[in-house]
Design a protein around this nucleic acid. Sequence first.
DNA 1: TTGATAATTGAACATCGTTCATTTTTCGGA
DNA 2: TCCGAAAAATGAACGATGTTCAATTATCAA
Lengths: 211, 211
Amino acid sequence: MAKREEKRRALREALVDAAWNRIASEGLAGLNARDLTRDAGCALGGIYTAFRDLDDLVMHANARTLALLGDTLETAVAGRRGGAALHALAEAYMGFALTRRRLWNALFEHPPPPDDTAPDWFVAGHVELLRFVVQALRELPLDEPEDALEARARSYFAAVHGIVSISIHSKFVGLSQDRLAAELTSFVRVLTAGIAAEAAGRTADPQASRA
Amino acid sequence: MAKREEKRRALREALVDAAWNRIASEGLAGLNARDLTRDAGCALGGIYTAFRDLDDLVMHANARTLALLGDTLETAVAGRRGGAALHALAEAYMGFALTRRRLWNALFEHPPPPDDTAPDWFVAGHVELLRFVVQALRELPLDEPEDALEARARSYFAAVHGIVSISIHSKFVGLSQDRLAAELTSFVRVLTAGIAAEAAGRTADPQASRA
DNA sequence: TTGATAATTGAACATCGTTCATTTTTCGGA
DNA sequence: TCCGAAAAATGAACGATGTTCAATTATCAA
């Protein structure tokens, strides 16, 4: 019986659970080491035997949120293709941000590590999300190589994120939920129309630059 | 001679100067009350006679950044109209984010006040920026009332911000500067093409819904 | 069972933003 | 010009924070 590893994993899980729940209920700001360890049922120093530091622990909690977001997007996009898939993804992303607001916020509020690079396993979670967008773009008339398609997917994902993000943070000028949904619909519609128009332009005038 | 007000204004200005400079050189994370007051040449408690608290002071420093960003965008957009203006705005926004990265970051890293509402004078600064986008959109074939145009402007601004933001924070998957610029160009081009295509659709089929 | 090794603990530490009693400065009226 | 009041400036002290570390406890291989 490998009691060592088992306890270690149990402690890590308890801490991530506690952190995730506290972020969900109080937000990232209402998270401190003492309440956390009390929730998890370990000593204050326990954090540092299980994780590098508190930021590392928060990253793992965020990874759980990222996975949940992935499931949400996967469900939303199921059976849809192309533009319909993009619409479904945008709406689902908005829905997730609104219903799981504090968890979603923590994904971006949390300060990046000093060297500004995230662990590979965290980046991978984000790439996973982009795959849905890449697949949808593949079903549109986009004459681009694979890597350019991934860059496009990143951009469109980031664009939708930006729209949702600035709207939800009324820190700047926010929109109501209905208006936000309408804006997202309009946005995706314009985007797909633009893609179709450029594709039509290419077939009509094959010599035109594709810069 | 109103020495009181004069000293008060001087102190406030010295503190905002110090905060702004520290944010510019060290980032928002490298900002603490003690270094700040030493830079500004006042006592630790001085912050709280001049401002409500440190967050309030940071907001004022951010307002200065916002004004600088406004000037940058205004210069970039000067003499350009419609799609060209949008391209210029996106490029200028990217340039600002890259060259004034820490100041620009502070605009969004800084946690919003608990009630999630920013002071009016701060919101006004953001609305100011949107005016450039609204004006550019007015010069495109967008059959929308004024308030819808403003919502569109917010969305497109937010979209560009999202693209730039996620790209710069390599926390997720970042792009090189050249690729980012190319992505922005492509994005604005698709957007304007989409707007034009929808306008063409309207004139060809005036009964179509505009939902 | 035992010695070595790893994990756990929580008091102590350094640092942070903020407060407040004290001191200094400012100002209108005598 | 002087004086009492009121405002502002000061910096030691406070409470809360994340992190460390010497002491304690638990685990494992022989």
